[in-house]
Lab assay of single mutants.
Amino acid sequence: SDEELKKRIEELVRRGNKDEARKLAENANSDEARKWWEKLEQL
């Protein structure tokens, strides 16, 4: 689900694993996940 995906992306970003988070968001084929990633990346 998008919610689970967003949690995983956020967790990866928090751990400093941005590349992994980006790949996850891009491969998810989910606009919501991509937007979430872009938002987190700004922080």
Rank of each mutant, 00 (worst) to 15 (best):
S1K: 12
S1L: 15
S1D: 12
S1G: 12
S1R: 11
S1P: 12
S1V: 13
S1N: 12
S1Q: 11
S1I: 15
D2Q: 10
D2T: 13
D2L: 15
D2G: 08
D2P: 08
D2I: 15
D2N: 10
E3W: 12
E3R: 06
E3M: 08
E3P: 08
E3Y: 11
E3K: 07
E3L: 11
E3A: 10
E4T: 08
E4I: 07
E4S: 09
E4Y: 08
E4P: 04
E4G: 06
E4L: 11
E4N: 07
E4Q: 08
E4K: 06
E4W: 13
L5T: 03
L5W: 12
L5S: 01
L5D: 00
L5H: 01
L5Q: 00
L5A: 02
K6S: 05
K6H: 08
K6T: 04
K6F: 15
K6G: 03
K6N: 05
K6I: 14
K6Y: 14
K6A: 05
K6D: 02
K7P: 00
K7Q: 12
K7I: 07
K7A: 13
K7S: 10
K7W: 10
K7R: 14
K7H: 09
K7T: 06
K7L: 10
K7D: 05
R8G: 01
R8P: 00
R8F: 05
R8L: 13
R8I: 12
R8Y: 08
R8S: 04
R8E: 06
R8H: 07
I9C: 06
I9M: 06
I9L: 09
I9S: 00
I9E: 00
I9W: 03
I9H: 00
E10V: 05
E10S: 06
E10N: 03
E10F: 07
E10G: 02
E10D: 05
E10K: 05
E10Q: 07
E11R: 03
E11P: 00
E11M: 06
E11A: 07
E11T: 04
E11I: 06
E11W: 10
E11F: 05
L12I: 01
L12Y: 04
L12Q: 02
L12P: 00
L12H: 03
L12S: 02
L12R: 00
V13W: 15
V13K: 01
V13A: 03
V13D: 01
V13H: 07
V13M: 15
V13F: 15
V13T: 01
V13S: 02
V13Q: 01
V13E: 01
V13P: 00
V13C: 14
R14I: 10
R14K: 12
R14N: 09
R14F: 11
R14D: 05
R14V: 08
R14M: 11
R14S: 08
R14Q: 10
R14G: 05
R15T: 13
R15P: 01
R15H: 10
R15Q: 14
R15W: 07
R15M: 14
R15S: 14
R15N: 14
G16P: 00
G16L: 01
G16E: 02
G16I: 00
G16Y: 02
G16Q: 01
G16A: 01
G16T: 00
G16F: 01
N17C: 14
N17D: 13
N17Y: 14
N17T: 02
N17H: 14
N17S: 08
N17I: 04
N17P: 00
N17W: 13
N17G: 03
N17E: 15
N17L: 15
N17A: 12
K18S: 13
K18E: 06
K18V: 15
K18C: 12
K18R: 14
K18T: 13
K18G: 08
K18A: 07
K18N: 09
K18Q: 07
K18I: 15
K18L: 15
K18Y: 15
D19G: 05
D19Y: 05
D19K: 07
D19V: 05
D19W: 04
D19P: 02
D19R: 04
D19L: 06
E20G: 05
E20D: 06
E20I: 04
E20V: 03
E20S: 02
E20T: 03
E20L: 09
E20C: 04
E20P: 00
E20Y: 02
A21R: 00
A21D: 00
A21T: 00
A21Q: 00
A21W: 01
A21L: 08
A21V: 01
A21M: 01
R22V: 04
R22P: 02
R22A: 09
R22E: 04
R22D: 02
R22G: 03
R22T: 03
R22Y: 09
K23C: 08
K23I: 10
K23P: 01
K23Y: 07
K23L: 12
K23W: 11
K23N: 08
L24A: 03
L24R: 00
L24I: 06
L24H: 02
L24T: 02
L24E: 04
L24W: 03
L24D: 01
L24V: 07
L24K: 01
L24Q: 02
A25F: 07
A25S: 04
A25P: 00
A25H: 01
A25K: 02
A25D: 01
A25N: 01
A25T: 04
E26L: 14
E26G: 05
E26Q: 12
E26M: 13
E26K: 05
E26N: 06
E26H: 10
N27P: 01
N27I: 10
N27Q: 14
N27S: 14
N27C: 11
N27A: 14
N27R: 10
N27Y: 10
A28M: 15
A28I: 15
A28N: 04
A28G: 05
A28S: 14
A28C: 13
A28L: 15
A28E: 03
A28F: 15
N29G: 13
N29E: 11
N29P: 08
N29C: 06
N29T: 09
N29S: 09
N29L: 14
N29H: 10
N29D: 11
N29F: 10
S30F: 09
S30A: 04
S30C: 04
S30I: 04
S30K: 03
S30H: 04
S30N: 10
S30V: 04
S30T: 11
S30Q: 05
D31R: 05
D31E: 13
D31C: 08
D31N: 06
D31Q: 10
D31K: 06
E32D: 10
E32I: 10
E32Q: 08
E32K: 06
E32W: 15
E32N: 06
E32S: 09
E32C: 04
E32A: 10
E32R: 03
E32Y: 09
A33L: 15
A33V: 15
A33P: 04
A33F: 15
A33E: 02
A33I: 15
A33R: 02
A33G: 05
R34F: 13
R34N: 04
R34Y: 12
R34P: 02
R34V: 10
R34D: 04
R34H: 05
R34K: 10
R34S: 04
R34W: 14
R34I: 13
R34Q: 08
R34C: 13
K35I: 12
K35W: 10
K35M: 11
K35Y: 07
K35T: 11
K35D: 09
K35F: 07
K35A: 13
K35E: 12
K35L: 13
W36S: 02
W36E: 03
W36T: 04
W36L: 11
W36N: 01
W36I: 06
W36G: 01
W36Y: 13
W37I: 14
W37N: 02
W37F: 15
W37K: 03
W37T: 02
W37A: 06
W37C: 04
W37R: 03
W37D: 01
W37Q: 02
W37L: 15
W37S: 03
E38W: 05
E38H: 07
E38D: 08
E38L: 09
E38K: 08
E38F: 05
E38A: 11
E38M: 09
K39C: 11
K39R: 11
K39V: 12
K39T: 12
K39P: 02
K39L: 14
K39H: 14
K39N: 11
K39W: 15
K39S: 12
K39Y: 15
K39Q: 13
K39E: 13
K39I: 13
L40A: 08
L40Q: 05
L40D: 02
L40C: 06
L40V: 08
L40W: 09
L40K: 03
L40P: 02
L40E: 03
L40M: 12
L40N: 03
E41I: 15
E41Q: 14
E41S: 14
E41W: 13
E41T: 15
E41P: 03
E41C: 14
E41M: 15
E41R: 09
Q42S: 12
Q42R: 10
Q42H: 11
Q42P: 07
Q42M: 12
Q42K: 13
Q42E: 09
Q42I: 09
Q42C: 06
Q42G: 10
Q42T: 09
Q42F: 11
Q42A: 13
L43H: 08
L43M: 13
L43C: 11
L43V: 08
L43I: 12
L43N: 08
L43F: 09
L43Y: 11
L43E: 13
